[in-house]
Nucleic acid binder design. Sequence first.
DNA 1: ACAAATAAGTCAACATGGCTGACATAAAAT
DNA 2: ATTTTATGTCAGCCATGTTGACTTATTTGT
Lengths: 140, 140
Amino acid sequence: MLFFAYRDFTAKADQTLAQFGFGRAHHRVIYFVGRNPGMTVSDLLGILRITKQSLSRVLGQLVRQGFIIQNPGSTDRRQRLLSLTDKGSELERKLTEEQRALIARAYRSAGADAVEGFRKVLLGMIEEGDRRRFRPSQPR
Amino acid sequence: MLFFAYRDFTAKADQTLAQFGFGRAHHRVIYFVGRNPGMTVSDLLGILRITKQSLSRVLGQLVRQGFIIQNPGSTDRRQRLLSLTDKGSELERKLTEEQRALIARAYRSAGADAVEGFRKVLLGMIEEGDRRRFRPSQPR
DNA sequence: ACAAATAAGTCAACATGGCTGACATAAAAT
DNA sequence: ATTTTATGTCAGCCATGTTGACTTATTTGT
């Protein structure tokens, strides 16, 4: 079920991304930066669990094409804090909108109790250390 | 949440697969053939939503290395019905066992009601045509 | 103050698993 | 007898992962 749900969850966004010459890897970056403005590159690497060489390819494209900006950290100036530009936010909204619609439909047809259960089980599948992201209203 | 859950759900199996020189694509084939013994290549293509050229690469390896056998269809002899060999079943069990443990843990900590909700929501996310696979005890 | 550690980036080469397009074969359907 | 279908194959391209080696700027620790 997870396979089917994930397959269908990503299908539409993938189409939209293709129009920009982007792939799912770009979407992940846009998504997480959008939800954690000012996050560091290390943070992102820790979430995605890919190498910095892999990340740098997609991140570099997004920066060069003006979807993401990097600002030096205020306390630690080695860091390059990531945020979406307006252009980046627009794309993020567009992509997430489609997925939100799909999720919303599933939520409506399943009911509020089901949604709570859904989140509970998903949370239980996630590695201990990352669960806190979903507890109060922590970074996602 | 889906991203994190999927990431962690696949992590362990990916390690095991790597020991065999396989990837996630092989796992998908082994998984679906294991649950639908005697399925056709077309069936599998329809589930995975990839091209036959992509499938043939991984399927070919699995067949040549004796994890899957192909038998001509009885009514339609153009078909090559797919099943796991004993060797294939063994690998399938090994892979699924790890994932089953993870799911079981999540289920236990979330409770039976949550599980029902989880399945309901997932089902709602899946494209209409594929939902029937999960209704009674149809092919998955 | 200096050495070591850290955050980020870069170059190069390689692997996996998607894709398109063209074509082949056997069997079934018309 | 012809066309369609199920499957497979070859060749080449692209996206996105990997390792390994090395650079630069900045911070940390002694």
